[in-house]
Design a protein around this nucleic acid. Sequence first.
DNA 1: GTCCCGTTTGTAGGATCATAACAACAACAT
DNA 2: ATGTTGTTGTTATGATCCTACAAACGGGAC
Lengths: 249, 249
Amino acid sequence: MTADESEAIDAFEHLGLTSYEAKVFIALQRLGSGTARDVARTTDVPRSQVYSVAESLAEHGLLDVQQASPIRYRPVDIEDARTILRDRFEHEQDRAFEFVDQVSEAVADEETQEDIWTVRGRDRIDDRTVDLLSSADERLVFATRLPELLTDAIGHVLEERARAGVETIAVSRTDTVCDRFAELEGVSVESPTRPRTDDHRSGRIAIVDDDGILLSVVDDGGEETAIWSSESLFATVLIQLIEANQHVR
Amino acid sequence: MTADESEAIDAFEHLGLTSYEAKVFIALQRLGSGTARDVARTTDVPRSQVYSVAESLAEHGLLDVQQASPIRYRPVDIEDARTILRDRFEHEQDRAFEFVDQVSEAVADEETQEDIWTVRGRDRIDDRTVDLLSSADERLVFATRLPELLTDAIGHVLEERARAGVETIAVSRTDTVCDRFAELEGVSVESPTRPRTDDHRSGRIAIVDDDGILLSVVDDGGEETAIWSSESLFATVLIQLIEANQHVR
DNA sequence: GTCCCGTTTGTAGGATCATAACAACAACAT
DNA sequence: ATGTTGTTGTTATGATCCTACAAACGGGAC
């Protein structure tokens, strides 16, 4: 079995199929159509199990059953299969959130006070960083060591804030990153004057208006984790700490 | 726990969460934010489990973790949660079909020969019916006893084929259905001359060009099952059988 | 001490995976 | 006809894994 195939099986499992179901479905797509024996020959699914697994897939709407002897199975068209799975997902999501929408209406407006939050995952940290930077009124600082953490979305918001009259400072000691910073209109690029030695785990730093901050780290596995706080004493203190340490201003 | 809530939990499970994860997520949406104890009080999830479950939800990106004592959890905005789940679904689907797209290209063009297929489920039968009717070149017949089986999609394809010069015949003994048929431009409505007595399980019949047929039944539970065949001797014979029996032409 | 927090460990149940046995049937040679 | 061989579809039986659920523990704060 190829790596591509295992990955496809894994993905189908995340979509709600069992591994047998995924294997049978893929095998039938490969074969065009076939009997239980055909499927068992080309996969490691025991023939005796193919019948029930295919039955289950038929109930999902992912294949047709041909009443013959031997029974033949035929998968639906690929695009139809995508549509079936997507419709199923949308339906389940609507069902799930119908209730949640009701119960959360009551608490929609709450104040964020002296809180610091943890966020995991590059994409979500990216979103949060953009949110934070967008809220800058007077001054913002964005710093990173890794080029891949300077996303297009962040680049755009830096330029946008600079155009809006916000003092926009970009910091890095990495040449690649500095070059990209330099391409951004209205953004002033700086290098920290006192390089820290052991920063091989640092990710990004975003600071806005002396009262909002996000700080992320990247672990050995490449996973990014961030803490952030806004309009809190904690944020203010942290900002002062970082700016003093990195000699940015 | 209300019925709505159990349904929401069930739906979340279909979206890939465990029941604990669903319960904690819903509870936090209700609370706005809260500690493990808060969650345990309002659900039947043991407090000791809330920590790991919340951790897992944080990895899914569905809530933030507040580093404090006690730890506070805050769910993401509902719309953000929908987006996260949808993105996750699309991503998994792409991953799943990337491989399938490759392996099935080779067998894309195959001839359908002397085959008869079984299809389950109202929606899929609906799709298949529309497909079949769309392929009519000279003549098509559509018949049903139940108004709910005459869907808009089928109505549209009947009108469209009639406009294209195809002899379009709609058959029913149910007044409601006949009325709807009558609204369709260019469709001639007929009633079977020899009513069969025990047709309480019949669903729909679709016939095209004397060589394509779909025939469905509805069981006591309301489940619809269909067989269909196209360009096969079987189809031809079946069509003759039905038309002779129902005296349609 | 007493309460609470967060972690860890252990157990029961259910679903899936994996293997095997079975009756029914067709093809074929004796 | 008879027996052999092979295939089909069904069913039964462990093994294994994950979740649900319960309980205990060390460490702090009061």
